[in-house]
Design a binder for these strands. Structure first.
Lengths: 166, 166
DNA sequence: TTGGAAAGTCAACAAGGCTGACATAAAATC
DNA sequence: GATTTTATGTCAGCCTTGTTGACTTTCCAA
């Protein structure tokens, strides 16, 4: 096999050609990554932005709008438009904060949780197949490279996204 | 720390929790992946769509419009809008085909190549830093997982994008 | 208690996807 | 030679999702 995991000599994996392949792999893989949820969303009135909101509300129930803003790194209005439709459609509940009444704490309703599950089941299925095909060692490398590719702030937030409390 | 990178038994790397982390890693890493070129493009009249076109024209000089359409998986109107501005601005040259005069073979001009280089230098720098930080073994795993995540057609096309001939 | 900051909402605009219809030229086929 | 198919371009119009700017409501601190 011979991975040349060694010291400084090899470095063939850092050639421009190798990097270009990595760049294109990211491009094509990301398309696959979003393809299944996108298929589910199309036909409903929702899009990828709704998926992201629902995902992170599921992940951090009770999170505030501001918190979500910093995770998603979009403007308030972009997020607000999405949240409004989700709240109007009864997928998300926005509870006025107890300590601070300016805040809205976000929770999925039963129907919201149902959509979340459909979307993440689809996305996880593809991820699981890819993980299984590549094996645990490859997965570890995958995670290492991705983490190194993030902006530093995100690398921090990524491990422990701030939780909101209701 | 404790990665359980072990043999086939564990399968701990296939838990929903691990998959969710992988999903979020893709999300945050992709944002980093596009951040630097996006910064360069903002202020010019161009966006990510222009970057993609310029990238693949650089990668496969002389490629046809149709070829590019299948790589980028967008509609011809979307691509055309982008190509028109690039041609008008003198970054891309569209040469009428010799064998088949219906085809347009796409090439970067000197200025187009200059923009391509600026964009890909920035993107490669981040990729290189990530690769270097993670090491060659991790990079191999990264590529394996990404490839397994692509749609099958793309997995084929990814290794040998059709070349165009002038 | 009042003035500033923070959280959220609304209005209007831009980029870049999309569909559908149609035009032209060239190639391929009958 | 006439017809059909292919490759490309273009117009009009729509949708999602990003943007900025202005505006409440609420909180907090001087």
């Amino acid at each position: 096999m011979m991975a040349d995991s060694g010291g400084g000599e090899g470095l063939l994996f850092l050639t421009d050609e190798q990097l270009r392949k990595g760049i294109e792999a990211m491009f094509f893989a990301y398309r696959g990554f979003t393809a299944d949820p996108d298929r589910i969303l199309e036909g409903m009135d929702y899009g990828r932005a709704h998926h992201r909101a629902v995902h992170f509300i599921h992940r951090s129930p009770g999170t505030t709008v501001n918190n979500l803003l910093s995770i998603l790194a979009v403007t308030k209005q972009s997020l607000n438009r999405v949240l409004r439709t989700l709240v109007d459609d009864g997928l998300v509940e926005a509870r006025v904060g107890v300590a601070d009444k300016r805040e809205r704490h976000l929770h999925l309703t039963a129907r919201g949780a149902e959509l979340e599950r459909a979307l993440s089941d689809a996305q996880r299925a593809r991820m699981r197949a890819a993980y299984r095909a590549a094996g645990p060692v490859a997965v570890q490398g995958f995670r290492q490279v991705l983490e190194a590719m993030m902006d530093p702030e995100m690398r921090k937030g990524y491990h422990s996204l701030k939780e909101g409390n209701p």
